[in-house]
Nucleic acid binder design. Structure first.
Lengths: 138, 138
DNA sequence: CAGCATCCCCCCCGATACTG
DNA sequence: CAGTATCGGGGGGGATGCTG
C-alpha cells in the first residue's frame, strides 16, 4: 500500500510515443498506475515520472482532479503534505490501460517494424496500374 | 461492403475531446472505423470526417501507412483513383476502440459531470487540517 | 515540500490556394 | 479526384527561477 514507487517502473527506452493509444495527456496514464496501490505525495510521484517538471505534473494532476479522476488532499502541516488518490472513476481506467498494454505487447513490435521498413525503403512503388489508360503516351 | 459512409456517423456534438483516450492522432480512430467495411477512396473518407482538410487527412493516412495500419493503392486511371484499406494490424485496433467506447458509455457522463461541477464551484476547499500546528496564530 | 511565474519551442491542426 | 504548397494559430510540454 505504501511501498515506495520503483524509479524505473516506466522504461525511458520504451517507445511509448509510438503507441497509437494515449490515456489523457502525456503523463495521465502513468499517474494512474502510480496511484494504483494507494495515495501518493507530489514528490513521490515525480520519482518514477523521470524528468517531469513540477509545472507539468501540477497541470496534469489539476486536470485529473477537475475531471474527477483523483482527489487532492492538502494537510496543513509544516512541511506541507499533499496526497493524491484515485477516485472510483479514476480506477475505472485500469481496464482501459490494461487493454492498451495488451495491444502494445501483441502488436507494437509489428508497428515498429513497419515504421523501420518505411524509413529504410521509402522508394516503395506508389503507383499500381490496374486499368491501363486507353492510350498510354508513346 | 461498399455501402456509402454515413455523413453523420460521427456526432460533432460528441465531446470526444473530453475523452481521456485517444487512438493515434486526432482522426486516426475515425479513419479506422470508416474502413471497417472495406477499402475506401480519399474523397469518400472526407464525408464522415466533416471538416477535415485534405492536407491533414493526407498526413493522417501517410502516418498510418508508415505504421502498417493501412495500405494505399493508387490506380493509374483518369480520373485518378486511390483506395485505402486496413491491414491486419489496423484491424487489431478494433478491440481497443471498442474498449474505449465501452468506457465512454459507462463513465464519460461522470467525467463531464465532475468537470461541470468544478467550473461552477471552483471555490472548493483546497486545504484540510488534520494535524494542527503546535501553535495556531492568534 | 509543493507548488507558482515566466519564457519559449515545437508540432498538431486548420484555412486558403493551386495542380497533375 | 487526389492530392501539394504555404501560411498561421494554439496549446501541450519543457527549462529555469522563485515562494509560502
Amino acid at each position: 500500500m505504501a511501498n515506495p514507487l520503483d524509479p524505473e517502473m516506466f522504461d525511458p527506452i520504451c517507445p511509448s510515443s509510438a503507441m497509437p493509444i494515449q490515456i489523457g495527456d502525456k503523463w495521465t496514464g502513468m499517474v494512474v498506475l502510480c496511484l494504483e496501490e494507494g495515495p501518493r505525495r507530489f514528490t513521490e510521484l515525480r520519482v518514477p515520472l523521470g524528468g517531469v517538471t513540477p509545472k507539468v505534473l501540477t497541470q496534469t494532476l489539476r486536470a485529473m482532479e477537475r475531471d474527477g479522476l483523483l482527489t487532492r488532499t492538502a494537510y496543513d502541516e509544516n512541511p506541507p503534505r499533499v496526497e493524491y488518490e484515485l477516485t472510483e472513476l479514476g480506477r475505472s481506467l485500469f481496464s482501459l490501460i490494461a487493454a492498451a498494454r495488451a495491444w502494445s505487447r501483441d502488436h507494437l513490435p509489428a508497428l515498429l517494424a513497419a515504421r523501420a521498413a518505411h524509413e529504410s525503403a521509402p522508394a516503395a512503388p506508389r503507383l499500381l496500374r490496374r486499368s491501363p489508360p486507353s492510350g498510354p503516351g508513346r
